[in-house]
Simulated assay, not measured.
Amino acid sequence: MSFAYLRKLVKEHIERSTVKPKRTISKIERAISLSILLFLLAIAVVVAHMGRQRSIAHYVLSETAFAGVTKGTALKLQLPPTMPNGWKRGKIETYNANNLYEKIDGRAELYISYDVVELVCTSYKREKDEGMFVDVFIYDMGSPHNAFGIYSYERAGVGKRIKLGEDGYEAGGSIYFWKGRYYVQVVAAFEDEAMKQLCLSLAKTIESQLKGGRSKIWGLESLPKEGLVSGSIVYIKRKAFGHDFLEDVYTAQYRYGGKNIKAFVSKCKSANDARAKLAKWKEVVGKYGQVMKSEQYKGQPLFAGKSGGGFVVVFCKNELLGGVIEAEDIKLAEGFAKMFFEKLR
């Protein structure tokens, strides 16, 4: 019912009321008829208002409409638009866990296993020489643990350590570092001293703007310092040593008694969870290798055995699961494991 039609009804009503009727219309009848018209007019106003609200709603985004929007805008600010000597930044690209394979196919699964949130990347090219380029990758890993994890996994003992971020290294003229929740790669087109200095300068610029400080990583603080091989600590988030039940594991290489020792520690959900994982591990060693010893060491379970061509010693200390794997000598492995047990808090 339109406003024009209602106005017409009201007008006709007024005209009829002013013309002398064949019979007298009482005041009550007039009041009732006018009330009906006003009621219809009110309904029309409400319907029209609802119609306007519905049409506006088609153009207003709900909060859930932004659920898939990435946080790349904040990271883009860390990438300077130009560099000295004619270097210019190209298009900035952003990727998340769902489409990361489009940029780093073959390596995306590794980053996803460390719960990558987002990748922001670009290339810097020299105007007069397209063959001269530097690729920049900034990974938001969601937490310092994950950032250190992917950094430590890819480092794998290569390169020369540098003081950048919370830890960094240079390899082949390229620069790699982590800081807070971010893992950064500044990759040179080729190895050259001038390119290395350019990459280092760009990496320092990015590092100075990234949020984060000295992150407290419990695994780094828990592993023994004596005999530690520099740069050998690695954080494995899932399926450590090929076991589905092992997660959140820190490993490191040591020199102990003239031999190589690989130690590990994992923080479990509870003391019972740690004991359950030790029992599962012992079961696997018994099935595919040999359990050589199973005992209580200072009130905590410990077992030693041979598995995969090396010796293992695994112990619990409350909610912590620790020990030695791939050892060359069972006695040295036991000695290191018990020393490690004493130092854990």
Results as ranks from 00 to 15, higher is better:
residue 211 K to C: 07
residue 211 K to T: 06
residue 213 G to A: 14
residue 241 F to D: 08
residue 195 M to K: 02
residue 264 F to E: 01
residue 227 G to P: 15
residue 198 L to H: 02
residue 171 A to N: 15
residue 162 I to S: 00
residue 241 F to R: 12
residue 269 K to D: 14
residue 158 V to E: 09
residue 245 F to Y: 13
residue 203 A to F: 04
residue 262 K to Y: 11
residue 206 I to S: 03
residue 206 I to H: 04
residue 238 R to L: 14
residue 214 R to M: 14
residue 237 K to S: 10
residue 266 S to H: 02
residue 268 C to A: 11
residue 220 L to W: 14
residue 185 Q to V: 13
residue 155 R to E: 12
residue 229 V to L: 10
residue 261 I to F: 00
residue 237 K to T: 04
residue 160 K to E: 13
residue 237 K to R: 15
residue 185 Q to N: 14
residue 189 A to L: 12
residue 183 Y to Q: 09
residue 177 F to V: 09
residue 172 G to S: 11
residue 180 G to K: 01
residue 186 V to P: 03
residue 179 K to C: 03
residue 229 V to I: 15
residue 203 A to I: 01
residue 250 Y to E: 06
residue 215 S to H: 08
residue 208 S to I: 05
residue 164 L to S: 05
residue 221 E to H: 10
residue 258 G to W: 10
residue 241 F to Q: 12
residue 250 Y to C: 00
residue 189 A to W: 10
residue 271 A to V: 14
residue 271 A to L: 14
residue 234 V to S: 07
residue 211 K to R: 13
residue 182 Y to E: 08
residue 178 W to L: 02
residue 176 Y to Q: 05
residue 212 G to H: 07
residue 186 V to N: 04
residue 251 T to W: 02
residue 252 A to W: 07
residue 229 V to N: 06
residue 161 R to T: 11
residue 187 V to T: 10
residue 155 R to A: 12
residue 208 S to D: 00
residue 219 G to P: 05
residue 260 N to H: 05
residue 210 L to V: 03
residue 238 R to V: 14
residue 160 K to M: 09
residue 213 G to P: 00
residue 172 G to E: 08
residue 185 Q to P: 07
residue 184 V to I: 01
residue 186 V to L: 04
residue 239 K to S: 05
residue 204 K to Q: 09
residue 173 G to W: 00
residue 181 R to Y: 10
residue 168 G to S: 13
residue 224 P to W: 01
residue 191 E to R: 15
residue 268 C to V: 13
residue 228 L to F: 12
residue 167 D to I: 07
residue 206 I to E: 02
residue 197 Q to C: 11
residue 249 V to R: 00
residue 247 E to M: 11
residue 239 K to E: 11
residue 190 F to Q: 08
residue 185 Q to C: 06
residue 203 A to E: 04
residue 227 G to W: 15
residue 247 E to Y: 09
residue 194 A to Q: 08
residue 206 I to A: 03
residue 176 Y to M: 14
residue 242 G to E: 05
residue 237 K to F: 04
residue 213 G to N: 14
residue 204 K to E: 06
residue 272 N to M: 12
residue 222 S to V: 03
residue 220 L to N: 13
residue 243 H to P: 00
residue 222 S to D: 13
residue 198 L to D: 02
residue 209 Q to A: 14
residue 196 K to L: 08
residue 218 W to R: 09
residue 233 I to Q: 03
residue 165 G to P: 08
residue 229 V to W: 10
residue 209 Q to G: 13
residue 164 L to G: 04
residue 247 E to L: 06
residue 217 I to M: 07
residue 180 G to M: 01
residue 205 T to N: 05
